[in-house]
Lab assay of single mutants.
Amino acid sequence: DETGKFLVLALYDYQEKSPREVTAKKGDILTLLNSTNKDWWKVEVNGRQGFVPAAYVKFL
C-alpha cells in the first residue's frame, strides 16, 4: 500500500559506499521513507532500504 508515501526519481546512478546506503540507477523510481536530512534521504528500492544523496533524486 503506497498511501501516504512519496515517490522520487533517481536523476543519476548512485553506487552505495556503505551498508547504510543503497544503489540506485538513473531513472529508478524510489519510495521516499524520510527526507528530514537535507543531504541524505532514506529510500526503498528493490526491497532494500537505505540512504541516497538528496541531490541525486527529485520528487515525481
Rank of each mutant, 00 (worst) to 15 (best):
Gly47Cys: 05
Lys26Val: 08
Leu11Cys: 13
Tyr12Asp: 07
Arg48Asp: 03
Leu7Gly: 01
Tyr56Ala: 14
Tyr14Ile: 07
Val45Cys: 07
Gly47Glu: 03
Phe6Thr: 13
Val57Glu: 02
Arg20Leu: 14
Lys25Thr: 07
Trp40Asp: 00
Asn46Cys: 09
Asp1Trp: 14
Glu21Asn: 04
Arg20Phe: 13
Asn34Pro: 04
Thr31Asn: 07
Leu9Thr: 07
Asp39Leu: 13
Gln15Phe: 15
Ser35Arg: 11
Ala55Ile: 11
Val57Ser: 00
Trp40Pro: 00
Asp13Ile: 10
Arg48His: 06
Leu30Arg: 00
Leu33Asn: 00
Ala24His: 05
Ala54Gly: 03
Lys38Asp: 09
Trp41Gly: 00
Thr23Phe: 04
Leu33Met: 05
Gln15Asn: 13
Phe59Trp: 09
Asn34Thr: 06
Val52Asn: 02
Val8Tyr: 06
Pro53His: 06
Leu60Lys: 02
Glu21Ser: 07
Thr36Pro: 03
Glu16Cys: 13
Phe6Ile: 15
Val8Trp: 05
Lys42Gly: 03
Arg20Asn: 13
Tyr14Thr: 02
Asp28Leu: 07
Lys26Asp: 04
Phe59Ile: 15
Ser35Gly: 10
Leu7Val: 08
Ala10Gly: 02
Lys26Glu: 08
Asn37Cys: 12
Asn37Gly: 09
Ala54Val: 08
Lys17Met: 11
Ile29Val: 11
Asp1Arg: 14
Val43Ser: 00
Ser18Gln: 06
Val8Phe: 08
Ala24Gln: 08
Leu32Val: 13
Gly4Arg: 13
Ala10Leu: 15
Glu2Cys: 15
Val45Ala: 07
Val52Met: 11
Lys25Trp: 06
Gly4Leu: 12
Tyr14Trp: 10
Ser35Thr: 12
Arg20Lys: 11
Ala10Gln: 06
Ala24Ser: 04
Lys58Asn: 06
Lys26Cys: 09
Asn46Glu: 07
Lys38Asn: 10
Val43Ala: 00
Val22Met: 05
Gly47Arg: 01
Glu2Tyr: 13
Lys42Asn: 04
Lys38Trp: 07
Glu21Val: 04
Phe51Arg: 01
Val43Lys: 00
Thr36Asp: 15
Ile29Met: 05
Phe51Cys: 10
Val57Gly: 00
Gly4Lys: 14
Arg48Asn: 06
Leu32Thr: 00
